[in-house]
Amino acid sequence: MFYGVDLTSRLMLGTAQYPSPHVLQQAIAASGAEVITVSLRREGADGAAFREILAASGARVLPNTAGCHSAVEAVTTAQMARELFGTNWIKLEVIGHADTLQPDPFALVEAARSLCADGFQVFPYTTEDLIVGEYLLEAGCEVLMPWGAPIGTGHGLRNPEGLRAMRAHFPDVPLVIDAGIGAPSQAAQAMEMGFDAVLLNTAVARAGDPVAMARAFGAAVQAGREAHDAGLLPPRDMAHASTPILGLAELA
């Protein structure tokens, strides 16, 4: 449940870097994603085609503040996005460093506080830091989006223990793994760990066949969620025979 919205699919898909608008449209459909992320930019060559895809996809739009390096920039971008896309949802990114694309937690909390007070429903791109998470909740966020790994790296869940601790620390807060996912197995892992959704872009957009990869991610996210709900076997150190010993023949 994300700000009162129940989603069937737990995959959120980015719309950037696809080889063509047509492939993007097919990939959204194949993934089953009901939420797609978008941005605001100075008008480019393919703006009109993109607006048509947005309208045709039927997906809920989650605008981002990608590229913002200060709270002020992010707040202004969010205000522009709210008017343009007609939604209070905002994926809040405040980048701390251009090379690592690591969030700036201080500016993030500042921007989140301002936006929540202004009626936005904020999806903050954050790290697995528990205290930053608490500050974001106190600021008014009802969802947290910890990174799996730095944006675009495809490293998956780089700090699984930290993420597991975060899941345990915020049992009732919707948590979305955002960024760094490179393979469907990594998305499934996040879902098995009990995260509520996965948001990814590059791994699909830059795949050899983005449409097939979108389908694979959709299936992996669903499998991971079902596995989590079904109750996973806790790992154990000693072997344990799965075939019953009782009734074993004596042949030696």
């Binding site: 980015g14 008008e43 990608a66 343009l84």
Partner: peptide
């Protein structure tokens, strides 16, 4: 650097050197 809502554009006066951003929906991650 300040957001100007659609309804306020007619009152937003431009001065020489004004910095205007006009943005459109674009692809994003």
């Amino acid at each position: 650097g300040q957001f100007i809502p659609r309804t306020a554009r007619a009152q937003a006066r431009l001065a020489p050197g004004a910095r205007v951003e006009i943005l459109s929906p674009m692809q994003g991650g």
